[in-house]
């Protein structure tokens, strides 16, 4: 019965419902987007009504918010943080810098496409996106989770070698421990 198709569907539905309405957010605030997080969380835009809540450490978090450009140096920390999070985990990438490099597209130390290094579930474009856009991004993520399409963490496990090759191309001196489940 437990592995019956229909009952699995019901379990999935309940799990996805819980996951979508309880998103613990770890905001990785290096770029300019970090300043958009406080208004999103506090009284004016109140993200908590969607069940979105700040998490203090990667172990407790579900969503990794990457707010803006990533230098190669910070990419190392992002990968480390992402690998410390518990599955299922989601990534929301903020702003044009994470999509195609934005205004730093020809800089010697900022990466251009984040989804080559870690899987991204939702992109929010803008430079910077306003809190409304951030909340709409979260709602989009909730829809994806409910539909079961937010499977970046699975993609990362399946294509780990490819991601790792891309990461090691940038981070030459690789001193981090290997990802294990």
């Amino acid at each position: 019965m437990a592995y019956d198709n229909n009952s699995q569907k019901i379990v999935d539905y309940i799990q996805n419902f819980a996951r979508k309405h309880s998103l613990f957010v770890l905001a990785y605030g290096t770029g300019c987007g970090a300043i958009e997080i406080p208004p999103t969380m506090t009284s004016r835009y109140d993200a908590e009504r969607f069940g979105i809540r700040g998490a203090a450490t990667p172990r407790q978090a579900d969503v990794l918010l990457i707010t803006g450009y990533l230098a190669t140096k910070t990419l190392k920390r992002v990968i480390r943080t992402y690998e410390q999070m518990q599955d299922p985990k989601y990534v929301i990438a903020f702003g044009s810098c994470t999509i195609n490099g934005g205004m730093y597209w020809d800089s010697y130390n900022t990466i251009n496409m984040l989804d080559k290094y870690i899987p991204v579930d939702v992109y929010i474009n803008g430079c910077m996106p306003r809190p409304e856009a951030v909340i709409s991004g979260f709602v989009k993520l909730q829809d994806e989770i409910q539909a079961g399409r937010a499977d970046g963490w699975k993609k990362y496990q399946d294509n780990l070698e490819e991601y790792r090759a891309n990461q090691k191309k940038i981070i030459k001196n690789w001193t981090m421990p290997d990802f294990n489940w």
Partner: peptide, 16 residues
């Protein structure tokens, strides 16, 4: 002065 999460939010958190 916020709306706040629903009252059953903690159940969802634990389930998640």
């Amino acid at each position: 002065n916020r709306v706040g999460p629903p009252v059953y939010q903690n159940f969802l958190d634990v389930m998640k």
